Computed example of a mutant assay.
Amino acid sequence: MRKTKKLVAGALMALMVSAAVATTAQAKVIEASRSGSYAYTNNAQERVYSKDTVCDNLFAAADWRSSDGSSGRVTNKDGCGKTVSIRVVYSPVYVYEIRACRSNSFSPVSCGDWES
């Protein structure tokens, strides 16, 4: 009986540890920058932020990719020094890559490297 209790207790402990690791594996902020743009996520990697860091009449954007295969862009046309954010996914899905971009209405978007 004692061996069975120890075995069950050990199995439960292993399950709890693996669940904790799985839920905290993506619990970090991802950051990316490009001249004039700063993109980042929240710790849960469910919200994407785009900040315009330069007053140059260009707008900032943040491209994102998520664990379920979806992707998108958060565009910030609010102007210099402003930050916009959007919750783009819901748990258990999370954003795993972002990149910061710059553009204006007449030119193509120029983006930095993907960061994870």
Rank of each mutant, 00 (worst) to 15 (best):
39 A>V: 07
39 A>C: 14
39 A>M: 11
39 A>Q: 05
39 A>W: 04
39 A>L: 01
40 Y>W: 11
40 Y>E: 05
40 Y>G: 00
41 T>L: 00
41 T>E: 05
41 T>C: 05
42 N>L: 12
42 N>A: 14
42 N>H: 13
42 N>C: 15
43 N>L: 15
44 A>G: 05
44 A>S: 11
44 A>M: 03
44 A>I: 01
45 Q>G: 13
45 Q>K: 14
45 Q>A: 14
46 E>K: 14
47 R>D: 12
47 R>E: 14
47 R>W: 13
48 V>D: 03
50 S>P: 12
50 S>F: 08
51 K>G: 04
51 K>C: 10
52 D>C: 12
52 D>Q: 10
52 D>G: 02
53 T>Y: 03
53 T>C: 01
53 T>F: 00
53 T>E: 05
54 V>L: 09
54 V>G: 00
55 C>S: 15
55 C>W: 11
55 C>T: 14
56 D>A: 00
56 D>V: 00
56 D>G: 00
57 N>A: 11
57 N>T: 10
57 N>F: 04
58 L>R: 11
58 L>D: 12
58 L>C: 11
59 F>Q: 00
59 F>E: 00
59 F>N: 03
60 A>L: 06
60 A>F: 01
60 A>V: 02
61 A>V: 03
62 A>F: 01
62 A>E: 05
62 A>V: 07
63 D>K: 15
63 D>R: 13
64 W>Y: 13
64 W>S: 05
65 R>I: 06
66 S>V: 09
68 D>A: 07
68 D>I: 03
70 S>C: 09
70 S>P: 08
70 S>A: 12
71 S>V: 08
71 S>W: 11
71 S>C: 08
72 G>C: 10
72 G>S: 14
73 R>F: 08
74 V>W: 00
75 T>S: 12
75 T>G: 06
75 T>N: 09
76 N>I: 02
76 N>A: 04
76 N>Y: 00
76 N>W: 01
77 K>R: 14
78 D>E: 15
78 D>M: 13
79 G>L: 09
79 G>N: 06
80 C>I: 02
80 C>A: 04
80 C>Q: 04
80 C>D: 04
81 G>I: 02
81 G>P: 04
81 G>K: 06
81 G>F: 01
82 K>M: 07
82 K>V: 08
83 T>L: 00
83 T>Q: 02
84 V>M: 03
84 V>P: 01
85 S>E: 10
85 S>V: 02
85 S>C: 06
85 S>G: 02
86 I>F: 14
86 I>N: 15
86 I>V: 15
86 I>H: 15
87 R>Q: 15
87 R>K: 13
89 V>L: 08
90 Y>E: 12
91 S>N: 15
91 S>C: 14
92 P>G: 06
92 P>A: 07
93 V>Q: 09
93 V>N: 12
94 Y>I: 06
95 V>H: 10
95 V>R: 11
95 V>C: 06
95 V>L: 08
95 V>F: 08
95 V>M: 10
96 Y>R: 08
96 Y>G: 06
96 Y>K: 09
96 Y>N: 12
97 E>T: 11
99 R>Y: 05
99 R>E: 05
100 A>T: 09
101 C>E: 09
101 C>K: 10
102 R>L: 05
102 R>V: 05
103 S>K: 11
104 N>F: 02
104 N>L: 09
104 N>Y: 08
105 S>N: 15
105 S>E: 14
105 S>A: 15
